[in-house]
Amino acid sequence: MQITGNTLFIPGATSGIGLGLALRFQALGNTVVIGGRRTELLDELVAGHPGLDAVQIDTTDPDSIAEAFRTVTGRHPELNVVIAMAGVMQAENLRDPAFLATAERTITTNLLGPIRLLAAFEPWLEQARNPVFMTVSSGLAFVPLPATPTYSATKAAIHSFTESLRVQLAGTPVQVLELVPPAVQTDLMPGQAESPTAMPLEAFLDEVMLLIETQPDAAEILVENVGFLRNAVANGSYPRVLGMLAGAER
């Protein structure tokens, strides 16, 4: 992926990693369109960051995705990068029947959302200049956090889906990238923004932008902090890492 000269659409960029990436790309002179559900928050962000554009989108709603596609491509016919950032993460007790509503909402947002975004935008990207479709998985795609089983499962599914997508689009100009974050100090989970075990957001963004710049042909964007999860199966540490995530070293 080239780091400049892009027009990007980032659904799920009203806070955290998504907003951080949006502002980093904008600072490099790219045209950036952020997406989110809350129009008042989008308006606030646009007012605070001149040049940023925003489009309302609910990635759990196919009609909203279709409308956002028409709006983004109508305003920005040079669109060439879509980053499927929107996601939710909630703890679940699988012995409590109430977990099912959380699981269904998580699957709709984290898995169906990116798939629907791909279906809407991929034909457009094939005609674009230097096109990129970026998914966002997680280190937990490779070793699950038992407290968030459905989140971890959706991120494993996104990784698998991205691998297949990359193979199927190999004959097209669309580059398929997978961003694989570790725990980052954001509000994704309660208390995560202050967690000493999570990576500071600005440090994460620094490393991600450097990787994109220095490894333009990479398939996965892997900061150093996510390596212990990404490589756990290969290096034989999976049982230990899973035990650590479960809260008890095995």
Rank of each mutant, 00 (worst) to 15 (best):
I221M: 12
I17D: 03
V241E: 07
E126T: 14
S138E: 08
N6P: 01
I221A: 02
S15Y: 04
V72L: 11
A246T: 07
D58Q: 07
L19P: 01
L118Q: 05
A203I: 11
G51K: 13
A234D: 09
T59S: 01
L79V: 09
V174I: 14
N80G: 09
R24L: 04
E126W: 04
A248K: 15
G18R: 07
L45Y: 08
Q168V: 07
Q127L: 05
E104N: 11
I107A: 11
A193M: 02
G35S: 05
V167S: 08
I34N: 03
A193V: 09
H159W: 11
P149H: 12
G18V: 04
L229M: 15
D96K: 10
S160P: 00
A101D: 15
L19G: 00
I221D: 03
L45I: 11
T108S: 08
E207G: 09
V226F: 09
P97G: 10
P97N: 10
R70P: 00
P173C: 11
A232D: 10
G74A: 13
G236Y: 11
A128S: 14
G35Y: 05
M209S: 02
P144G: 13
D43Q: 15
E220L: 09
A248P: 00
F25N: 02
G247E: 09
I212A: 08
M1H: 11
N93C: 09
I3C: 00
F121G: 02
T214Y: 05
F142N: 03
A103Y: 05
E224T: 15
G74H: 13
G12D: 08
R116I: 01
T148G: 12
A119P: 00
F133D: 04
A66P: 01
T108V: 03
L112F: 13
S160C: 05
E194V: 11
V132P: 03
G227K: 14
L201P: 05
F133L: 14
V223M: 07
Q26E: 10
D217N: 14
V167N: 07
L245T: 09
V180G: 06
I221Q: 04
A86Q: 01
P77S: 14
L169R: 15
R37Y: 03
T150I: 12
T14N: 06
T60Y: 00
A47T: 14
V72Q: 05
V88D: 00
R75A: 15
L45H: 09
I115V: 14
L177F: 00
L19C: 06
L201G: 04
N235E: 14
M189T: 13
T108H: 01
M134D: 02
A120P: 06
V184P: 03
R230P: 02
S64W: 08
M189V: 12
H49C: 04
D58A: 04
F99H: 15
